[in-house]
Amino acid sequence: MNIFRLAGDMTHLVSVLVLLLKIHTIKSCAGISLKTQELYALVFTTRYLDLFTDYISLYNTVMKLIFLGSSFSIVWYIRRHKIVRRSYDKDQDTFRHYFIVLPCLVLALLIHHKFTFKEVMWTFSLYLEAVAILPQLVLLQRTRNIDNLTGQYVFLLGAYRALYILNWIYRHYTEPHYVHWITWIAGIVQTLLYADFFYYYFQSWKNNVKLQLPA
């Protein structure tokens, strides 16, 4: 464990807790893409298949349970909660799941480290996580209004993966044979997807104006 990875995990943890807290307190999911949240639940499910088979550390197991629990809770709130679901904008959140899931699945079947079920599922979860934010970014472009918490949520989500890139660089130089080029490429693609959002987020923060994404 290094500081970059710990900071990355904490940033990721805060991002999902900020979102869960927002939905739970104001009983609204305005501006949140259910599609993206469902994709994240799928990411965690396919990535943590080894939750009960390989014990790495208490930290690792606890964090996996938190990520699984929070992502499924968020999906439950938006789908089932009698008040929250009313604020879900299903007419705007129309990104098709299979446009993202299928290519990632095909890619995972073609490019992976080992052709085993768990390894292909793990690789699939990496590719999926890289693009899972797309429905959310599309929704933000469409609705154009980004309330603070949603902006912070997306920002923290992008920041966590950027910190992970620093972690991979650190581990590459400190651990022999630490080779995970699939992880590195997926992580870089993911962070680049946030790049333009970061740009507008910093512009709005610097000029102290409301965050507006260009149409």
């Binding site: 990875r5 995990d9 990721h12 080894d50 390989d54 790495i56 550390s57 690792n60 964090m63 996996k64 990520f67 480290h113 080992k114 793990w122 992970y164 972690n167 651990e175 022999p176 044979h177 630490y178 080779v179 995970h180 992880t183």
Partner: peptide
Amino acid sequence: LDESHYHDEL
């Protein structure tokens, strides 16, 4: 791949 290919990251 060599056995260092472990998934210890979240």
